[in-house]
């Protein structure tokens, strides 16, 4: 099969099977990319995934770009990335059309009122998981507290916090190094 088509289809498969976010993706990538296609070793995959987690953007997309580039350069990275998002586009558009059409039905309204209560908890669980990796000492706890309070009570764009946090980190660490 044409390698570009192969990349697109393999990552479309990963996209379909990634159910519930990037964290669910790793075992599927291991099987498809490392074992079946041998496009990358397990170690490379772990590295890509780790970098994908701490760089901006969607983890699944970041990882797909990495592997696509390794296999077939720029065109490979673009096709892998398009592959990974393609199933989402199709599935979500179908569901969105349905949900938006039936938004006024009592059943849909009641269902979503229940679902929203559940979403609260899922977000809380995600925060707890991230907390363990992100809040490691006093300065990081302080950053968390400041950003949390400011963003609950003001309407500043999240972009501002991310940039300021990056600057604060660089300053903090260079001060530490000087001591």
């Amino acid at each position: 099969m044409n390698i570009y088509l192969d990349l697109f289809l393999s990552f479309a498969k990963v996209g379909v099977l990634t159910f519930g976010g990037g964290y669910a993706m790793l075992p599927i990538l291991q099987r498809e990319v490392a074992e079946n296609k041998k496009w990358a070793t397990e170690e490379e995959l772990m590295d890509y995934y780790a970098i994908g987690q701490c760089t901006p953007g969607v983890i699944a997309v970041n990882t797909a770009t990495f592997i696509g580039r390794k296999v077939k350069g720029l065109a490979g990275s673009i096709l892998s990335t398009l592959g990974v998002v393609f199933p989402s586009l199709v599935i979500i558009i179908a569901i969105a059309a349905f949900v938006n059409n039936f938004a006024d039905s009592p059943i849909v309204q009641n269902a979503f009122a229940g679902i929203r209560a559940c979403v609260c908890v899922l977000i809380l669980n995600a925060v707890v998981k991230l907390w363990k990796k992100a809040i490691v000492d006093k300065p990081t706890l302080l950053i968390f507290a400041i950003v949390f309070i400011l963003s609950v009570f003001t309407n500043l764009s999240p972009v501002v916090y991310v940039i300021l946090a990056a600057v604060a980190g660089i300053i903090l660490k260079s001060l530490e190094a000087k001591k």
Partner: peptide, 23 residues
């Protein structure tokens, strides 16, 4: 490394604040 050391807690805080809105 230094930038991500503080971006990570900031990002976690932003998600937590969004959680408050959902709540």
């Amino acid at each position: 490394k230094s930038a991500f050391y503080t971006i990570r807690p900031a990002s976690t805080a932003l998600i937590a604040a969004a959680g408050v809105l959902v709540l």
